[in-house]
Each structure stands twice: as structure tokens, then as C-alpha cells.
């Protein structure tokens, strides 16, 4: 997908439809690789900021994540999610950062984008599909479309990609 996997060193924005979606199923293979490590990289920390529900440890384990490397951050107000993501990006202590956020000002997004460009961190900002019209400095912008029907598949629409061409990919989830 995306011609060589998810990009690091730049902000990825993933837009989802309101309510339950499949974003974590889409992202979990990367989270698994980061938390477990492999022959070339050591296990690293990942951070889930302001998740919409309670991340269920047995489910994450079923996906293959190493739970001892997962951090969950709860926030009281929406603005804190962006602040926490900025702090995490700035520290360089986590290899993967996923934040669920609502409205985000241009300035805040620009700062996240600049920070994300400084280190090889995989950072994903998850927002509602209604923000698609807003301009965003993110390096990669995706929208997730659920496929009604029986197949465990989702469509990932790449509508902005600074590195490669845009397009649509169909992904079968485990």
C-alpha cells in the first residue's frame, strides 16, 4: 500500500466516518511491528491519544501488539489531544503516535506537521470526515470508507500524497 508502507517523518491525517470505524484495524499491523520490533528495529513505544472508546487489551493482543509498549493518554478537552501529540512528537520518545482529534486550527496542524518532519516518527491524526474540506499541511491525507456487505474490507482513499500519486486502495482487514 502507498508504494512502500506508511510514511514516517511527516504527519498523516486519516479521516473517518462518524461513529464506529475501522481505523485501528487498518493501523494495527504497523503498531504490531513497532511494539514487537523485528530483525532490523528494536521494540518501541506507541501512544494512543484520546481514543474514542476504551482500547481493549485482549483485542490489541489478538492483533499482535506487545501491550508492554502501548501507552494510552486520556484527555479532558479536545485541545489537549493536540497538545499531547505535540509533546509526544517533540520528545521523540515514541515511534508511533496516534491521536483522535476534532477541530484543529491551521496553526496547530502546521506545528504538528513541522515537528513530525523532524524525526522518523509515524504520526497519525484521526479526524472526522467532515474536516476533509479544510486545508491541512499533512504530508498524507486519507479517508477510510467502510464497505457495507459481508467482506471484511475497507477502502482507503488517498486524496493527498506529497510523495506519490493519489488513488484508492482496497484493504482486507484480518
Amino acid at each position: 500500500m502507498l508504494g512502500g508502507g506508511w510514511p514516517t517523518g511527516g504527519l498523516t491525517e486519516l479521516l473517518i466516518e462518524a461513529g464506529a470505524s475501522a481505523e485501528l484495524g487498518l493501523l494495527s499491523p504497523v503498531l504490531t511491528r513497532l511494539t514487537c520490533g523485528d530483525a532490523t528495529v528494536d521494540p518501541a513505544w506507541v501512544m494512543l491519544i484520546a481514543p474514542p472508546w476504551i482500547p481493549y487489551a485482549p483485542g490489541l493482543c489478538w492483533q499482535g501488539l506487545a501491550l508492554s509498549r502501548v501507552l494510552v493518554i486520556d484527555v479532558r478537552q479536545a485541545a489537549d489531544a493536540l497538545w499531547a501529540m505535540e509533546a509526544a512528537l517533540g520528545s521523540g520518545a515514541c515511534a508511533g503516535i496516534i491521536a483522535w482529534a476534532g477541530t484543529a486550527g491551521r496553526v496547530a496542524l502546521q506545528r504538528l506537521h513541522l515537528l513530525a518532519g523532524k524525526r522518523p516518527v509515524w504520526s497519525v491524526l484521526i479526524r472526522a470526515a467532515r474536516f476533509r474540506r479544510e486545508r491541512s499541511p499533512a504530508m498524507l491525507r486519507l479517508q477510510l470508507h467502510l464497505q457495507p456487505g459481508m467482506q471484511a474490507a475497507v477502502c482507503v482513499e488517498i486524496f493527498k500524497n506529497r510523495l506519490r500519486a493519489a488513488g484508492t486502495v482496497r484493504v482486507v482487514l484480518p
Partner: peptide, 16 residues
């Protein structure tokens, strides 16, 4: 830092 991988079966990633 032990990597525990014993999954209890098919489980969702979110719980209410």
C-alpha cells in the same frame, strides 16, 4: 518488557 502474545481468542480492539 516481556512480549506477551497469548491472545485469548478473537477479541475487539475497543470495549464499551
Amino acid at each position: 518488557r516481556r512480549v506477551s502474545r497469548q491472545a485469548p481468542g478473537c477479541r475487539p480492539v475497543w470495549i464499551l
